[in-house]
Structure formats: structure tokens, C-alpha cells
């Protein structure tokens, strides 16, 4: 598959009064053309920061993208782009859908204007045509009566409808990559499924690459072909959805999976939660970041950073358990 986006050793920090918060500490993954990838992890694991960095939305300062980080979009390092190039890239090549559509939409502008302004910015069309395009996009995301809806304000829409509007804005100008940053977290469960289905349909219909960012492994199963599991600013495991769901290697991924409710599970089986809290990113632990909560934790996990192991093609896991010395006590 042709690669659309390559994130290479991305490191992002934020400077705060208490010190440097190392939000993203060396993240690498690829997204192919038209491919759907999910980034999964708890809140604060750096997944949203990664998404915002790809969109160029990190403010510097207080943010800092460390030297050596690279994000290649169609072969160009977007981190080295000028402000003008960024403006062309944002929206036209890549767009984002935020978690809370109510906050992400401008409350005092009509929905039509918020879509049309993007269309007019990137394509040379008249205002009337831009509003026509806005109506078409609203229809595309499943909003009935678009001619009336374009004249309305965000507060006149329901939560699910607002998120559809966000998606319509993101789809305008046919970007090659759509980032959905927790698009369903603020919604009711039934509406969540609708939005996920919509994203999946659009991805296939428009052959658009999608990065779905979520803390909920349950919703990514049938959307994403590839899953990246993040913990404490690092990728701990990545692979195809079958790799992650059926042959997961990292104790953190396994723990996450045990926390997802399953229809096929025995009704008496309890859902497990992961004890403890993620480490503080101002002073991250020396070894494996998960070692403080890991049930399999070994002495070396607390002193040395684990290496990457590749299992099947593209299934990569960072864990000391797969070192030859650990084979013995794994069985034990």
C-alpha cells in the first residue's frame, strides 16, 4: 500500500510552571492511502497531541516539537513547512473532527457559513456555489433538509447532528486524510454507533485515509484495519486489527482488551479495570512506563527501556517479556 503519512520518532513537549511535560516521546507509525488507522490509549497518553501535531495545531510555545521528529505527508516533511504552506495543507490535504462539536463550532456563525468559508478558501468558487456545496456536504453526512439547515446556528442542532456538521466541514475540499479525535466520546451510545458507521462509510466511499483516535477499543474493531496502542507518550504495540484483537502481545493491550465488554463473554465474567494511574509525564519513569501497573513487571522493566520486537509483518510490540532471558519465567 502506498504511504500517505509517515510519523517518525515524533517528540512533543509542553513547558509549564511545574516543568516540561513530555506528552509524546518518540511515536512512529504509517498511514496508507485510503487506510483507516486507530490510535488507542487512555486520556493523557499523547494521542490527541499526536493528532494535533499532524494538523499543525500545536502552539509553540508552550509546546515544543523536538528536533529529529519528522512527519512526512506524501513524502514532504510537514514540520518544516512555512506558514503559507501550512494554510494550504490544513483543510485541503488533511482535516480534523474534534470531540466536542458544540465547542468546536463557532456559536455565532451559521453552519452554512462555517462550511462555505472553507470551500471558498481552498477553491475558486462563488459564494452561492460554496453554499450549494455546503448543502451537498450536509446531505452527504446524513442531515435532512439541508437548504434550511445551512441557515441555522450550531445551538439549533442536536449533539449527534452537530458532530455530523463537524464531519461535513472536515470533508469539504476532499482532504486525503481525516483525523477524528474522539469523535463519539461526547455522544450518547446509540448515536456513537451512527457516527462511527458514517465515518466508516465515508472512508470507503471517498477512499479517504482516516485516523480514528479513541480511548475505546470497542468502537475501532470494525473500522480500523490498523491499530496503534499508545501509553504514556509512547507506542507500546501496533499491528493489524486481528493482531491486536487476537494475538496481542503487550500486557497493556491485553489489559485494555479485558476491559472491553464482549457480547460473546460468559455473563458472569467480570470486566477488569487496570489498577493505578498512568505515570506523570513531567518526570516519566526510566524503564517501561507501564511497569508501575504491569502484572508481569520484572526488575529490568523498571531500569531499562524495552526494545521493539516484530512478530508478524507489521505487528510490533515494545516489551521486555519477549527477550530471550524472559522466556524462562514467562512459562513459570
Amino acid at each position: 500500500m502506498e504511504k500517505l503519512l509517515q510519523v517518525k520518532d515524533l517528540k512533543v513537549s509542553f513547558h509549564s510552571y511545574a516543568g516540561e511535560v513530555q506528552s509524546v516521546r518518540g511515536v512512529s507509525f504509517d498511514v496508507g492511502v485510503g487506510e483507516a488507522v486507530a490510535i488507542v490509549g487512555e486520556s493523557g497518553c499523547g494521542k490527541s497531541v499526536t493528532a494535533k501535531t499532524i494538523m499543525g495545531l500545536i502552539q509553540t510555545p508552550p509546546g515544543e516539537i523536538k528536533a529529529g521528529s519528522e512527519i512526512l505527508f506524501e513524502g514532504t516533511n510537514i514540520l518544516a513547512m512555512t506558514e503559507k504552506e501550512w494554510a494550504q495543507y490544513r483543510g485541503a490535504s488533511c482535516s480534523i473532527v474534534f470531540q466536542d462539536a458544540l465547542a468546536a463550532l463557532n456559536p455565532t456563525l451559521t453552519v452554512g457559513r462555517q462550511i462555505a468559508e472553507k470551500v471558498m478558501l481552498h477553491t475558486k468558487v462563488s459564494k452561492a456555489d460554496a453554499y450549494k456545496e455546503a448543502e451537498r456536504l450536509l446531505t452527504l453526512v446524513g442531515i435532512p433538509n439541508p437548504a434550511k439547515r445551512v441557515k441555522q446556528y450550531p445551538h439549533e442542532f442536536s449533539g449527534g447532528m452537530r458532530q455530523r456538521v463537524m464531519i461535513a466541514i472536515a470533508l469539504a475540499c476532499q482532504p486525503k486524510l481525516l483525523i477524528a479525535d474522539e469523535p463519539t466520546t461526547a455522544l450518547d451510545v446509540t448515536i456513537q454507533a451512527d457516527i462511527i458507521d458514517l465515518l466508516k462509510d465515508l472512508q470507503q466511499q471517498l477512499n479517504m485515509a482516516v485516523i480514528l483516535i479513541t480511548h475505546d477499543l470497542g468502537i475501532v474493531a470494525d473500522v480500523a484495519k490498523k491499530i496503534v496502542v499508545m501509553y504514556s507518550g509512547k507506542v507500546v504495540e501496533k499491528g493489524s486489527n486481528t493482531d491486536i484483537f487476537y494475538r496481542s502481545k503487550h500486557p497493556y493491550t491485553q489489559a485494555l482488551l479485558r476491559a472491553v465488554p464482549r457480547l460473546d463473554a460468559d455473563e458472569n465474567q467480570e470486566l477488569e479495570s487496570i489498577e493505578g494511574t498512568p505515570p506523570n509525564l513531567i518526570a516519566p519513569p526510566v524503564g517501561c512506563p507501564f511497569s508501575t501497573r504491569c502484572k508481569e513487571c520484572m526488575n529490568i522493566c523498571q531500569t531499562q527501556e524495552p526494545p521493539e520486537y516484530e512478530f508478524e509483518d507489521g505487528h510490533i510490540c515494545r516489551c521486555w517479556l519477549y527477550h530471550e532471558f524472559a522466556q524462562g519465567n514467562k512459562e513459570a
Binding site: C297, M298, N299, I300, Q304, P307, C317, F325
Partner: peptide
């Protein structure tokens, strides 16, 4: 079975470090 991708400093890794950690 698993392929190591990260170069490791063999000297720094001792087998006894792989004992299960006792957590405080």
C-alpha cells in the same frame, strides 16, 4: 520467533534482571 528491531547493548542486560519485580 519475535524479531528484535532495537539494537541492544548485550553487556548491559543480565539474566537476573528478568526476575519478577517486587513492588513497593
Amino acid at each position: 520467533m519475535a524479531k528484535l528491531l532495537t539494537p541492544l547493548d548485550k553487556a548491559a542486560i543480565r539474566a537476573e534482571d528478568f526476575a519478577k519485580a517486587v513492588k513497593d
